[in-house]
Design a protein around this nucleic acid. Structure first.
Lengths: 237, 237
DNA sequence: TTTTAGTGACGAACGGTGTTCGTGTCAAGT
DNA sequence: ACTTGACACGAACACCGTTCGTCACTAAAA
C-alpha cells in the first residue's frame, strides 16, 4: 500500500546523524590519495559525503585544521622499533627511511606537513622516539634538540620536494614517473646543455651527473651526510 | 580655455602603453615585501598598476611564472665571491649564509622557492658557483651533484620553514618576532609540558631545550652537520 | 506525555581567487 | 591612407574557504 502523497517522505533510514570528525578525516585522506592535495577542498569533501560544505564546520574548525588532522593520521602509520641506544645510528637511519616511506605512500601529503608545528598525537610520538634515541645515545639535551630538529626538517623537506614533483606530474596529466622524467627532466637537461659554456662551464658540462639518481638515492646521500655529522658530535666517538 | 565637453577626455599623457614584464615583477616584489606572499595575487598586482588582471597575461604566462620571476629576481641579490677551492669549506658556509640572508630579507619569498626546478638566470648562476666549488675542491662530478642538491634543499627548506612562521605571524596580526614567540612557542611549550611523562619522558622533561635557539642558530647547526659530512667525503681528507 | 532547549545539518550567500574570451584602441609598417 | 598586429581591459566563468540564518531532530526537563 503506497503512502499518501501529502505525508512528507521520510528521510533516509539514518536520521542523517552521520557526520563525524573521523569520517571527515577519512574522506579527506581518500581524496588526497586518489587525486592529490590540490583536489582536497572543503567542498569536495562535503560532496563526497553528500552534503554541503557548511556541514563540515561543526566537526572541524577549518581547512587548516583538517589538513593537520589528515597529516597526523598519516603519521600514525609510522612503525617505531624498540629503542636501542647502542645501535643509534642504524635506528636513526631506519627511522628516517620509514617516515620518508610513509609520507611518499600518500601522494603529496608532505605538502601539508611543513606548515605545522608538530602538535598531533602521532607527531609527538615520533618526536619522542627521535629525541629519546639521541639523548640515550649520549647527546646533551640541548644539542639533541637541534639534531632532532634538523633531521626532521631534512626528512620532511625532501618529502615536500617530492610532493611538488608529484603535483606537477598530476597537473600535466601524466601518469608515471617515467613519463614525468622524460617530459620534464629531459627538458631541463636540454636547457642546461644549451647554456653558454664559458659562463657556466661545470653545469653545462656535467649535465648527465646533475640529473642522475632518483629521489631515494638523493635522500639517502643527504641522510648519510647528516648522520656522519651527528656521529662526529657524539661523545663516544 | 576649457576643452569642449563633447570631446572625449584624453587618457593620461602616456597613451597607456606602460605595462612591461619588468614592471610587473617589480610590483609583485614590492607587494610581497610589504604584505607577504598571501597578498600577492594577480588582481592585487593589476590594481597596483591601475588596470585589470587580464592585462597582465600579455607579459606573464600566469601566476606560477610570475612567482618564478619574482623569486629569480630576489636570487639576483646574492653576492658571490671569487671561487677559491682551497678554502672550499669556508666558502660553502659563506654561500649558504648569504643565500639564507637574501631569502630572509624578502618576507616569505622562500615559500615560492621550493616549487620550482631552478631554471632562472640567477638560480643557475648560484648553482654554477656551488657545483664548481665542489668539483674544484676535488669531488667527482657525480657526487658533487648530490652534495649540491642536498645543500640547496637544506638552505631553501630552512628558509621555507621560516617563511611559514612569518606567514602565521602575519595572519595572527602580530608585528614582531617577540610577540610571535610568546603567543605561539609559549603555547607549544605549555602543551609539551602537559604531556604524560610516562609516555613522553624526554619531550616533556626537556621542553626548555626544545624551544631554545633562534632560527639562525638552528640553521648554522644543521649547516655544520652537512659540511662535516661533505668534508669526510672529500678525497683530500 | 508534553514542552523546551540545544545541537547538528545545510542552502544560500559573501568576498575572494586564477584564468579566458571578445572587443576595442592604438602605433607602426606598407 | 590603409592595413595589420599587438596590447589593454571589462566582463564573465568556475572555483575556493567561510559565515549566517534556518530548519529538523534528539534528549532532557516538566
Amino acid at each position: 500500500m503506497p503512502a499518501p502523497p501529502w505525508r512528507k517522505a521520510r528521510r533516509t533510514a539514518q536520521p542523517k546523524r552521520q557526520l563525524s570528525q573521523d569520517l571527515i578525516i577519512e574522506t579527506g585522506l581518500r581524496i588526497l590519495d586518489a587525486e592529490g592535495l590540490d583536489a582536497l577542498s572543503m567542498r569536495r569533501v562535503a560532496q563526497e559525503l553528500d552534503t554541503g560544505p557548511a556541514s563540515l564546520y561543526a566537526h572541524v574548525a577549518g581547512k587548516d585544521e583538517l589538513l593537520e588532522l589528515v597529516y597526523d593520521r598519516v603519521l600514525g602509520e609510522i612503525r617505531l622499533p624498540e629503542r636501542d641506544a647502542a645501535r643509534w645510528k642504524e635506528q636513526l637511519r631506519t627511522y628516517a627511511m620509514e617516515v620518508h616511506r610513509v609520507l611518499a605512500a600518500h601522494a603529496d601529503v608532505a605538502r601539508a606537513a611543513l606548515a605545522n608545528i608538530p602538535s598531533g598525537e602521532n607527531s609527538v610520538r615520533a618526536g619522542e622516539f627521535l629525541f629519546g634515541l639521541l639523548i640515550e645515545a649520549g647527546m646533551p639535551p640541548s644539542e639533541a634538540s637541534l639534531a632532532m630538529d634538523r633531521l626532521s626538517l631534512y626528512i620532511v623537506g625532501d618529502a615536500y620536494e617530492g610532493s611538488l614533483h608529484y603535483a606537477r606530474m598530476r597537473a600535466a596529466g601524466l601518469q608515471s614517473k617515467q613519463e614525468y622524467f622524460e617530459a620534464f627532466v629531459g627538458q631541463i637537461a636540454g636547457y642546461y646543455r644549451a647554456l653558454p659554456s664559458d659562463r657556466f662551464p661545470h653545469v653545462s658540462k656535467y649535465v648527465d651527473d646533475l640529473i642522475a639518481g632518483d629521489g631515494e638515492d638523493r635522500f639517502r646521500y643527504g641522510l648519510e651526510l647528516l648522520l656522519d655529522g651527528i656521529q662526529a658530535r657524539m661523545p663516544t666517538s
